[in-house]
């Protein structure tokens, strides 16, 4: 296959960027999208150009590093597929492919297609955990959890933190990411004690980081490589609103 690429190139966080055109000749349809970029990069380096920087690591769709906007679609055309698992057979010979980084104020560009997603870590740090210090746990079977509950929690827990939901959202909202964690932990008995506080703190953090609000377009759910449902957002809204109406005990307020 022969393809024409238009790739966002930007030398550094404060440097100006622009789309640059590259010809990608002799691409095998069995290559993954990232392998196609590897080939382009090898060729760029042989001609003395600087290779295109992009985030990637596991290349099996689970680490969440890869993050490309391909022809205006986060992670490209195949639903439920991260960029690293997208194969070139999904494109046709002669296609023009536009490749851009995730765009959000909270995701500043580091270089080329690499963005800084630390904002997502800070949302987790705000409350996306169960406070269970090592050593303090009761027996794993001490609390029964219905299979359906744990399965629903697992559906949400699959989030790989890639940020595609933000990239695809017309509002630049991180609601699906935040809601997936709130849902995962909020469904399990272990997550109950901190449930409302968690929702309140994580949502507040999400706002502070400068993500947009949720208008329920549903684009995030379609972009999500793990196809996490916007039902999680309903749950987040419920927990957050309940948290906002529930009086906070003085002790908890002080620990804030």
């Amino acid at each position: 296959m022969n393809l024409t690429l238009h790739v966002w190139r930007q030398a550094g966080p404060d440097a100006p960027g622009r789309m640059v055109r590259y010809e990608a000749a002799d691409i095998s349809p069995d290559m993954s999208f990232l392998e196609m970029l590897d080939v382009v990069n090898e060729r760029l380096m042989q001609t003395g150009d600087s290779p295109i920087a992009f985030d990637h690591d596991c290349r099996e769709g689970i680490c969440g590093s890869c993050s490309l906007m391909i022809n205006g679609v986060a992670h490209g055309p195949n639903p439920g597929t991260a960029t690293c698992q997208l194969h070139m057979r999904s494109f046709a010979d002669g296609d023009e492919i536009h490749i851009e980084p995730w765009r959000a104020r909270a995701f500043p560009v580091v270089r080329d297609l690499v963005v800084d997603r630390a904002a997502l870590d800070r949302i987790i740090a705000a409350g996306g955990f169960v406070s269970a210090a090592t050593g303090s746990a009761p027996d794993g079977n001490a609390t029964l959890i219905p299979k359906d509950t744990v399965d629903t929690a697992m559906d949400a827990a699959q989030c790989i933190g890639c940020g595609a939901c933000v990239a695809a959202c017309p509002n630049g909202s991180a609601s699906l990411f935040t809601a997936a964690k709130i849902t995962h932990l909020g469904l399990l008995p272990q997550g109950q004690p901190e449930r409302l506080q968690r929702a309140r703190r994580m949502v507040e953090r999400m706002d502070i980081e400068g993500f947009g609000g949720c208008t329920l377009y549903g684009e995030c759910q379609e972009a999500c490589p793990k196809m996490i449902s916007i039902d999680t957002i309903t749950r987040m809204n419920r927990d957050f609103l309940r948290a906002s109406m529930t009086p906070v005990r003085a002790a908890v307020a002080e620990s804030d």
Binding site: H6, W8, M69, G72, V73, H98, E219, E222, A223
Partner: peptide, 12 residues
Amino acid sequence: VGYAAGRQPQVS
């Protein structure tokens, strides 16, 4: 900063 190629709505 928006997308040069435009963001393509999928399901909204």
